[in-house]
Simulated assay, not measured.
Amino acid sequence: MAPVAAALTKVLITGFGPFYGVTNNPSWAIASRLPATLDNNIQLIVYPAEVPVAYHPVASIIPALIAEHQPDVALHIGVAEGRSYFAVEQSSTRRSYEFVQDIYGEVFTLEEQAKAWGDAEAVLQTDLDLNVIVDGWQNGTLHMKWPFNIGGRSTSAGQPVEVVLKEDIMETEDVRWSDNVGNYLCGFMYYMDLVEMGRSGAYKKRDVAFMHVPLLKTEEEFQFGVEVTVALIQAMVDDWRAKGRV
Rank of each mutant, 00 (worst) to 15 (best):
S96M: 07
D39K: 15
D127G: 11
I45V: 12
A36C: 09
T172D: 11
L110P: 03
L128I: 10
K145A: 07
T109L: 08
I133P: 01
W177G: 02
L124W: 05
R94G: 00
D174A: 12
V164S: 14
E89H: 11
L232C: 07
Y191S: 03
S92W: 08
S178I: 07
A49F: 13
W146R: 14
F19E: 06
Q90A: 15
E173Q: 11
D127P: 13
H212K: 06
A87W: 00
D127N: 14
S27A: 14
T14N: 00
V53E: 00
G201L: 00
P3G: 06
K10L: 05
D72W: 02
A87P: 00
Y20L: 12
F210I: 05
A5N: 14
M1P: 11
S92A: 15
A6E: 10
V213I: 10
F108P: 02
V4R: 14
P160A: 09
E221T: 01
R153D: 04
E221M: 12
S27C: 08
V4C: 09
A64S: 14
G15C: 12
L216E: 01
A120R: 04
K243C: 02
L194G: 03
N40R: 14
D129N: 15
K217N: 02
K166P: 01
M236R: 03
A74Q: 12
E221Q: 15
F188G: 03
E106D: 13
T126N: 07
V230A: 01
V132C: 00
D127S: 11
A59C: 03
